[in-house]
Structure formats: C-alpha cells, structure tokens
C-alpha cells in the first residue's frame, strides 16, 4: 500500500511501533501454540509449564498495545485508514491474548494428564488439527504484517476445514468413551484440547476479518462457512 507519510512523522512512528508490538505478540502466541502441541505429543510437563508461565508476557503485551492505542487516539485523533489501523490493532491483540489463554489451557491439561498417560491413537488427530490451526495463525499474522487481504480471506475460508476436522474427531472420541469408561478422563481432556484448537482457529479468522477491515474499510460480509453438525461441537 503506497501511502505518503504523515505530515507529523511521530504519527507514523506510533503506527509502526504498534505493528511491531502486534508482530511480537503474534510470534510469542504462535510459539505458545507450537509448544503446547509439542508438550501434548510428548507429555512434556516442563514444556507445558513454560507455555503456562509465558502467558503473563502475552497479557502484558496486550495491555501495552491497549495503552498505546488509547494514547494514540487521544493524541492524534486518527481518521480513516489510521483509525481502522488502531482499532484493528486493539481487536487483534485481544484475539492473540485469547489464543495465548487457549494454548495455556492445553498446557494445563498436559500437566493434569501426566497421571493418566494411557496413549490414544486419537492424539495424532488432535496433533494434526493443531498443526492446521497453527498454520492458520501464522498465515493470518503474515496477512496482517503485509496488509494482504487475499491471504486473510484464504485463512477465513479455510476455517471450515478445521471445524469439520474437530467435529469428526469429537465424534470418534465419543465412541471411544462409550467403549470403555476408563478412557473418559483422558478423552475429556482431549476433547477440551481439540476444542481449544478449534477456538484458536476461530480467533485466527477474527484476525483475518480485522485485516480485511483495516485494508478495505468494510466488514467481511458473507456469512462465514460453518459446518458444525454434531451437538457436542456446539458452543
């Protein structure tokens, strides 16, 4: 987007700082998600603890972004694309913070599962979902950094696949639980992990919508493709 600089150079610096802060927050949360998935795969509680503890940094970054946005609005009275940029940054930092929370929750479940440790072949399914969600997150962070609407819309559309994968996985887990009630504790945790991953995908699509809003100035209007068919997937 070739746009001339602001007459007030500091305004450009403010906006650049914010984009930088979002990028940093995005890196940390993507790392959090990756580590959460790894810790689940390897039942690595040390890694899981680390995912949990790093969340404080993410929260702090979100507060910093919020403060910066509010101060910039108060100081510069932004209009048009600048205003959308600031509001977009505020919303995106919210979604990233939630993604951090969800990764943290997976970490907590890994710690809790330590005692259980019966393996399940469905772990692989959860891993696969997690990888898809992580790609979605990385792509949308890229789309934000480059103000790439096409890439954002692609992320937005792909979320359907993640939803469908969650649903089939949940259905399978249900049948395993019915087969042997001793599995229930494990699968309850896995269900929550799968749900967390699905939610991470949802927040990535929110970010995609915000990238679209920042660049185009209007909301992504078509209803988002949804394919939630199981009752258990509702929510």
């Amino acid at each position: 987007m070739a746009m001339p600089e602001h007459t007030v150079k500091e305004f450009d610096a403010d906006l650049a700082d914010l984009a930088q802060m979002i990028a940093k927050m995005g890196d940390i949360t993507a790392r959090q998600v990756l580590d959460a998935l790894d810790s689940l795969e390897e039942f690595d509680t040390a890694k899981a603890e680390n995912v949990i503890s790093i969340d404080a940094t993410v929260d702090e970054l979100q507060h910093d972004i919020e403060k910066k946005v509010i101060l910039t609005i108060a100081r510069r009275q932004p209009m048009a694309v600048d205003l959308r940029d600031l509001i977009g940054a505020l919303r995106i930092s919210n979604d990233l913070e939630r993604i951090g929370d969800l990764a943290k929750n997976i970490g907590k479940r890994v710690v809790a599962l330590k005692a259980e440790t019966p393996r399940s072949q469905l772990m692989r399914g959860v891993q696969n979902m997690g990888e898809v969600a992580l790609t979605q997150l990385r792509d949308v962070l890229d789309a934000y950094a480059n103000r790439d609407v096409a890439k954002a819309v692609a992320v937005w559309k792909r979320d359907e696949k993640l939803d469908a994968a969650t649903n089939s996985l949940l259905r399978e887990m249900l049948s395993y639980m019915m087969e042997d009630p001793r599995n229930i504790t494990l699968y309850i945790h896995l269900i929550f992990c799968a749900k967390n991953i699905e939610r991470i995908g949802d927040h990535s699509t929110n970010i995609a919508e915000n990238v679209h809003f920042i660049v185009e100035g209007r909301l992504l209007s078509d209803p988002r493709p949804k394919s939630d068919t199981t009752e258990i997937g509702t929510g």
């Binding site: 007459t7 932004p78 048009a80 694309v81």
Partner: peptide, 13 residues
C-alpha cells in the same frame, strides 16, 4: 479516494 484519505489522515504534503 486517495486524495481524501491523505487529507483526512494528515498525510497531505
């Protein structure tokens, strides 16, 4: 329009 955007956002030279 770009000209309007540049003016309202304070990017006018």
């Amino acid at each position: 329009l770009g000209q309007t955007r540049d003016y309202v956002t304070g990017r006018f030279g």
